[in-house]
Design a protein around this nucleic acid. Structure first.
Length: 953
RNA sequence: GCUGGGGUGGCGGAAUGGCAGACGCUCUAGCCUUAGGAGCUAGUGGGAGAAAUCCCGUGGGAGUUCAAGUCUCCCCCCCAGCACCA
């Protein structure tokens, strides 16, 4: 990288101030007695060997800018930093370079802390922590034990995700589209006994809590999706035809969100997992059924769930009784039904569920229609009335008539049809309308342009003076619809002209014609509607029928969640050993005594994963051989370690008191500082870390270990914002692309202040941006101009223009800092400096100092240096954020925009105090405007504030 | 497919319904300089014109409004999350 102009020696200055800040302990708040605590948290990085990523630098400095702003507003800002050093990422790299993870960690730690120091952030270094420090993970283990004692940690054998490359099990949250979140390898299913956290117990609270916290919408949406709440019913189907079993002795429960379609249930489907369970308890299934079960359970999850895969299944030989119809229906086994959700069995309603329909078609199972779509309904609000208002279906002929009308102008007019050759008919209709109405601007839109709809359309651009308020006509001349439609003696289309009310009436009348063309076409209707073929429930709406039918068949209302329990154990080395002990005599799992924590991770040579379902520690008897904490007999330690996401699920609490040997957190500090006021990090953690951290906090809250955020049930973080992604030349940075930015290079050449400014200027923090070398030079220029400007100030007062410029800047920067819009804050500073530098401006020292204060969060080193050069003794970061006089933010003279018919025609400079009357006069007397008015009498003159006059002719 | 978030110059991005493109980068011309990879000045959405000035422009189509990047409806495209969850 080339050297670049610089007005000052940033290397010297930046070093000087960083040292002084540390020496003065400027960024260490009083954790016990803060006046206005503000916990400014950023996601701690995992220390990769490559060092800090430029995206990390941007986020950290962005958070720092916000924190420095808050500090100058009088808050006691706590901004700690640490390293999330445990985990597979670090371990894999250690394996790759053949170095022990612990040794590697110490090396990368040093490099990371150096870089974090050099970006000039106001970190509270006294409270730094590393998750691999035994003093830290002792409490991670302690946390595990508390959850175990509370029944929130348990062991079970289950089909779990296994990454064949990372050689460990994974939590559901770590499987992205069937692939390992870390390495992208396809995940397979293994039947293993593992440790789980009962996060599902908190599903409802995790969902409801989202309404009480101020979090980025992307995250709350992702979490809502992930938790996946469904409200439905549990319905019991008695079974018949089981060999050797009395009819009705056994039954199967299904979960459905559509009990209103129960009358349409023509078969049941159970998952292979459920079928396997039945086999295990003695079901004598036919051979082909056994074969199918074995086959589908052996396959990869990915293959089984592949979209578009043809459905497979087999008839079980068993029947069930539909409790609504009392009819006997077959029970099938098919792998499109998931074992892990609901009851592992479904009621199939082929007429109203796409998957069931597909299955029924393939195996020729009966289909019963029980829901009629509610069509022809007029949408209530005025805006909707102006576009499409109805799609009316013709039951017998699979036709749509789509109606549309709008305002007095008529809007868009649609005409129904259902086949390509109908275009001729439309053309005829078009011609007729043109003849009848004289509208020549009717536009024909071909069917192919209306991808998803089986209708043709015109848009009508009619003249404004037409009085017709609505149009209605029908397509004629198609023998398939002939019988329902009138036509004239020539057999052509008849066009009926109706008022809006008449159209409404007609549509009401036609509702009885609505039907089910979709079934025949291979489409099904899965929405809500009106019940039919459902006995006493006919004519009822779906919504109403749902619970009435559930009640009738003695079903039970139930809420299901898609969220699964958090699989916490990992068959790896570089993590906290799970502090559990299996005692052969007691025949149970017992937690390690708390006074024996931490269970130290031994320094073993062979730390690589074994590739079996046993962790590396299982090869070290000196580790796992122990005594039972209960009976004192011989016992065996758990050799798995816990998921790295457990380490990060509570670190914000440990920061408050990282050297506490008695408690995992000081309770009083937690009450003072939590919930975290502001948290900023990556959106990629939306259903990983950010869900776990909430769960753990809620559990700690319920167990009485922390005592904050009672009103939200223990939500740990008030505000969360996700930062954007930085690209280089439009592409994601990656080693393989060779477009990775190393922050060190830029720190060396341009300095921390310029780099910080540039990263902040790129885009709002919550959005991404593209890193450009040239962009950073703009920041160097700007800072150099600020540097040089110190020579230009006087001891006295600024002139009025300069005074107004700084007042405006203070206002704008204050607002933008709060909303993390650092890009526009910097822009406001540039505008202010541009004004200061104008020829003839007089700028007082005081105003330059205020300017430096605005700059201080962004470029903390040079701001402090200049502040000192202007005679200040104390650091600028201890000073109070400047205030401004609102009156000064308004200009004395303003630019008045004069429009004619909404088009800008002239701008004149007027006094800000101008009255409406004067504005009108000035506008009408302008020579330029007179040209446009051309002697006409204005119909209307619109005046907006003191900035705009619009003359309407 | 579902749920969010987007689509504005050559680029990053600005715009409480009221001058679209702030601020910066890039580029062009000129100045300064032994030199320029520094700095300074001016210009930089497209089209027409010698110029004043005019026309067109915020993914596409309609609508509301005196006035739409902004509000409403339909469509297209991109990004993220979920995805056979009954």
């Amino acid at each position: 990288m080339k050297e670049f102009m610089k007005a000052y020696d940033f290397k010297k200055i930046e070093k000087k101030w960083r040292e002084r800040w540390l020496q003065d302990r400027l960024y260490e708040p009083d954790l016990d007695n803060p006046k206005k605590p503000f916990y400014n948290l950023m996601m701690f990085p995992y220390p990769s060997a490559e060092g800090l990523h430029i995206g990390g630098v941007r986020t950290f400095t962005g958070v720092d800018i916000y924190g420095r702003f808050k500090r100058m507003q009088g808050h006691d800002v706590f901004q700690p930093m640490g390293l999330d050093g445990f985990g597979i990422n670090s371990e894999n790299y250690a394996i790759k370079i053949g170095e022990h993870p612990k040794k590697l960690a110490l090396r990368t730690e040093e490099n990371f802390y150096r870089q974090l120091h050099e970006i000039g952030n106001a970190f509270a270094w006294d409270e730094k922590l590393e998750t691999y420090d035994p003093e830290y993970y002792r409490w991670t283990q302690w946390l595990f034990i508390q959850l175990f004692k509370a029944g929130l940690a348990y062991r079970k054998k289950a089909s779990v995700n296994w990454c064949p490359k990372c050689l460990t099990v994974l939590a559901n949250e770590q499987v992205i589209a069937g692939k390992c979140e870390r390495c992208g390898t396809e995940v397979i299913q293994k039947e293993l006994e593992q440790w789980f956290f009962k996060i599902t117990k908190y599903a409802g609270r995790l969902l409801d809590g989202l309404d009480h916290i101020d979090w980025d919408g992307r995250i709350t949406t992702a979490q809502r999706n992930w938790i996946g709440k469904s409200e439905g019913a549990l319905i019991t189907f008695p079974l018949t035809g089981i060999p050797g079993q009395e009819d009705g002795k056994h039954s199967v429960d299904v979960f459905t969100t559509r009990p209103d379609t129960l009358f349409g249930t023509t078969f049941l489907v159970i998952s292979p997992e459920t079928a396997k369970f039945w086999l295990d308890i003695g079901w004598q299934a036919p051979d082909e059924v056994r074969a199918y079960i074995t086959k589908s359970l052996g396959g990869k999850e990915e293959e089984r769930l592949a979209l578009g895969k043809e459905k497979t299944g087999v008839f079980s030989g068993i029947y069930a009784i539909n409790p609504a119809t009392d009819k006997q229906i077959p029970v099938w086994v098919a792998d499109y039904v998931l074992g892990g959700y609901g009851t592992g069995a479904i009621m199939a309603v082929p007429a109203h569920d796409e998957r069931d329909f597909e299955f029924a078609k393939k195996f020729e199972l009966p289909i019963a229609l029980v829901i009629e779509p509610e069509t022809g309904k007029i949408m209530p609000d005025e805006q909707h009335r102006r576009s499409i208002v109805a799609i009316v279906e013709d039951p017998k002929h699979k036709k749509f008539l789509t109606l549309n009308w709008g305002s007095k102008l008529g809007g868009t007019l649609f005409i129904g049809g259902g086949r390509e050759e109908g275009e001729d008919e439309v053309a005829t209709a078009l011609r007729e309308i043109q003849e009848e109405t004289g509208y020549t601007q009717l536009e024909f839109v071909a069917k192919s342009e209306l991808m998803h709809h089986h209708y043709f359309a015109f848009s009508k651009n009619v003249a404004r003076n037409i009085e017709v308020t609505s149009l209605y006509f029908r397509l004629k001349g198609d023998e398939r619809v002939e019988e329902n439609l009138q036509h004239d003696e020539k057999g052509n289309f008849t066009i009926e002209w109706l008022t809006k009310d008449e159209v409404l009436q007609k549509m009401e009348d036609e509702n009885h014609l609505l039907g089910f063309r979709r079934l025949v076409l291979g489409e099904i209707y899965s929405g809500d509607g009106i019940l039919t073929n459902s006995g006493e429930f006919d004519g009822m709406s779906s919504r109403e029928a749902k619970w009435k039918i559930t009640e009738k068949v003695k079903g039970k209302q139930q809420t299901n969640y898609r969220l699964r329990d958090w699989l916490i154990s990992r068959q790896r080395y570089w993590g906290p050993p799970i502090p559990m002990i299996w005692c052969d005599s007691c025949k149970e799992w017992i937690s390690e005594k708390e006074e024996n924590l931490p269970v130290l991770l031994p320094d073993v040579k062979e730390f690589r994963p074994t590739g079996t379902d046993k962790a590396p520690l299982a090869n070290f008897p000196e580790f796992y051989e122990t005594t039972c904490p209960k009976c004192g007999g011989k016992a065996r330690r758990e050799t798995d370690v816990s998921d790295t996401f457990l380490d990060s699920a509570w670190y914000y609490l440990r920061y408050l008191d990282p050297s506490n040997k008695k408690e995992f957190v000081s309770e009083s500090r937690a009450r003072t500082w939590a919930p975290v006021h502001s948290y900023i990090g990556g959106a990629e953690h939306s259903v990983l870390h950010l869900l776990y951290v909430r769960f753990v906090s809620m559990a700690l809250h319920d167990l009485g270990f922390v005592d904050f955020a009672k009103e939200s049930g223990g939500e740990p973080i008030k505000q969360f914002r996700a930062h954007g992604l930085i690209t280089k030349d439009g592409a994601k940075m990656s080693k393989s692309r060779g477009n990775v930015i190393n922050p060190d290079d830029y720190l060396r050449v341009y300095g921390a202040d310029a780099l910080r400014m540039y990263l902040a200027f790129m885009a709002p923090l919550t959005e991404g941006g593209d890193f450009q070398d040239t962009g950073i030079r703009g920041m160097v220029r700007f800072l150099s101009r600020v540097w040089d400007f110190k020579e230009c100030v006087i001891d006295g007062e600024s002139d009025e223009i300069a005074e107004r410029a700084i007042a405006k800047a203070i206002k704008k920067v204050s607002e933008d800092m709060e909303s993390l819009q650092f890009n526009t804050a910097i822009s406001a500073l540039m505008i202010c400096l541009n004004t200061f530098e104008e020829g003839g401006r007089i700028v007082g020292k005081k105003d330059l100092k205020d300017f430096l204060k605005l700059l201080a969060p962004l470029a903390p080193h040079v701001a402090d240096e200049l502040f000192e050069m202007l005679g200040e003794k104390d650091s600028i970061h201890k000073s109070m954020w400047p205030t401004y006089d609102e009156a000064l933010t308004h200009d004395v003279s303003v630019k008045l925009v004069i429009q004619v018919n909404g088009k800008m025609r002239e701008i004149i400079e007027v006094a800000a105090t101008i009255t409406e009357q004067e504005m009108k006069e000035r506008a009408l007397s302008s020579e330029q405007i007179k040209k446009y008015i051309n002697g006409q009498e204005p119909k209307n003159i619109i005046i907006v504030g003191n900035k705009l006059v619009n003359i309407v002719l």
